[in-house]
Nucleic acid binder design. Structure first.
Length: 489
RNA sequence: CGGGAUGUAGCUCAGCCCGGUAGAGUACUCGUCUGGGGGGCGAGUGGUCGCAGGUUCAAAUCCUGUCAUCCCGACCA
């Protein structure tokens, strides 16, 4: 069997790239740092997007769209915000091209210089809050609960397909509230939505937590996050939800009249997840044979492979099976390719992470059964054709659950409590370091020092972590709660 | 942006040191035998050697620049 995917133990980064390319998820593009999301990869994103969109609507949000371009002056209104993003902005300076005088092609027409440069949004807080100023007058206009699906650009030095690209797709929710408490509740609610999505749909267990001051979003008072653990023992921030306080309201002068006729600044939140989730999905479940997808997000949940190739009798049975599966709401396809042999197709569908494969040949038809192979465990089993739809429907649920359980078990195994800096360093030197739960004195100085010494960062202060006092692993100063460290993407 | 490596057929790569007008495997097309885990045989298609300059009678090969990708650092969803 010709292996086309690098083993994880040989080269984890290469394994990841192989999966992305061989499973047809994405390609590098002609533009530095940007990727082409291919139809199969985009289909996964569509499934994520559709489900998240439902969850946003269920919690009272509506979609809108704000411009790609942001006037440069907007970005600098909020001091922390501009400081955080200034180093990675693409800037539009001109609006016209012209033929080069020497005939060598087109050049920027110097006469078309913009009076004020436009920034391609790295995130939309500024343009949105500049707009909200006009939309919000009274407490009756609140809360304002808006989401947008968009692309953003952050000019990254080093990029990796899905995990960090110069342009990426995401959603950004931006809400305005009358009170601090309500805004915080919104921030927490959306964090819960993300966690539920990650666990129930991506089958990826996540830790909900609060970012430290140093890791906080530029312009936020508090940044909450969900953190997932990848198979190589590194953490991935899978989603963030920010309590913005009144920072943007003040920067953009967004006030409202309260019931007792007082002018007050509104309270804000923003929250987002991106195509990075696809990278997380890959690194949570996939193996050396290729992509492994949780059934709820898989573009194709079941594929039927005719053995040895399509034939009238097999096609007929396949149609019946497909009809029965579709009646159960299952996404199924029939591999009608005549050219490749079954063995090739098996490998191909495994590479693309199709959760369930049904192998159907004349031998099976005679026996009134079908060969059912599940992607997560690679188990194969002959199952009677009668009641196959119900069997597969249940199997898809089992696979979804098994993937979650497996990932949860892995995370539990790779989460270590340590109480000394020596133990801390020892864990980080292992092949798969994982999460380290340890005491920290709460200062940015210590956080940076630990990062400098070990490359590990504080991923979050877990929300449901037990309250336990102790002493900081580095400084020995008092600590009220353990925090979660890890090397991170 | 610093350090390292690599760009030759769709893909993986050889050829480069020692300049002489481009090869293999795979993929693709056609035929044929096959067919329950990545098939065999035969015949074909396919490349201005990343790009731009320079040296030379002659450049994939030597020189300069540039772009891209990968790995390692600093930064980040």
């Amino acid at each position: 069997m010709a292996k086309e995917i690098t083993a994880r133990t040989d080269d984890y980064s290469q394994w990841y790239i192989d999966i992305v390319k061989k499973a047809n998820l994405a390609d590098n593009s002609a533009v530095r740092g940007c990727m082409v999301i291919k139809p199969y990869g985009y289909a996964i994103w569509e499934n994520m997007r559709d489900q998240l969109d439902r969850m946003f609507k269920e919690t009272g949000h509506v979609n809108a769209y704000f411009p790609l371009f942001i006037p440069k002056s907007f970005l600098s209104r909020e001091a922390q915000h501009v400081e955080g993003f200034a180093k990675e902005c693409a800037v539009v300076t001109h609006h016209r091209l012209m033929n080069a005088p020497d005939g060598s092609g087109v050049v920027v027409d110097p006469a078309s210089k913009l009076e004020e440069e436009l920034i391609i949004r790295p995130t939309s807080e500024t343009i949105i809050w500049n707009t909200y100023r006009d939309w919000i007058n009274s407490y009756r206009d609140l809360p304002l609960l808006i989401n947008q699906w968009a692309n953003v650009v952050r000019w990254e030095m080093r990029t990796r397909l899905f995990l960090r690209t110069a342009e990426f797709l995401w959603q950004e929710g931006h809400t305005a509230h009358a009170t601090r408490e309500e805004a915080i509740a919104e921030t927490r609610q959306m964090l819960d939505v993300y966690a539920r999505f990650a666990e129930e749909y991506m089958a990826t267990p996540v830790i909900k937590g609060l970012k430290t001051a140093h890791e906080r979003f530029a312009g936020a008072e508090d940044t909450y996050c969900i953190e997932a653990l990848m198979q190589d023992g590194k953490a991935l921030q899978a989603g963030t939800s920010h309590f913005l306080g009144q920072n943007f309201a003040k920067a953009f002068d967004v006030k409202f009249l309260t019931e007792d006729n007082q002018q007050e600044y509104v309270w804000a939140t923003s929250w987002g997840v991106s195509t990075r989730l696809i990278g997380g999905l890959i690194m949570t479940h996939s193996d050396d044979d290729g992509l492994v997808l949780p059934p709820r997000l898989a573009p194709t949940q079941v594929v039927i492979v005719p053995i040895p190739k399509p034939a009238a009798q097999i096609n007929e049975e396949a149609e019946k099976i497909m009809k029965a599966l579709r009646a159960q709401g299952i996404r199924v396809s029939y591999d009608t390719d005549e050219k490749n042999r079954p063995g090739f197709k098996f490998a191909e569908h495994e590479m693309r992470g199709v959760p369930v494969r049904l192998g159907l040949g004349l031998r099976d038809l005679e026996a009134g059964q079908v060969e059912v192979a599940r992607r997560d465990t690679k188990e194969k089993k002959a199952v009677p054709l009668a009641g196959i739809a119900e069997y597969v429907a249940q199997l898809l649920e089992d696979i979804q659950q098994n993937l979650f359980d497996r990932a949860a078990r892995f995370r539990a195994e790779k989460t270590t409590r340590v109480d000394t800096f020596d133990d801390f360093k020892a864990i980080l030197e292992t092949d798969i370091p994982g999460f380290i739960s340890a005491h920290w004195d709460g200062t940015t100085e210590t956080e940076l020092k630990i990062k400098e010494l070990t490359k590990a960062t504080i991923r979050c202060i877990p929300l449901d972590g037990e309250v336990e006092s102790g002493t900081c692993i580095l400084t020995g100063k008092p600590s009220a709660q353990r925090v979660l460290f890890a090397k991170a993407y």
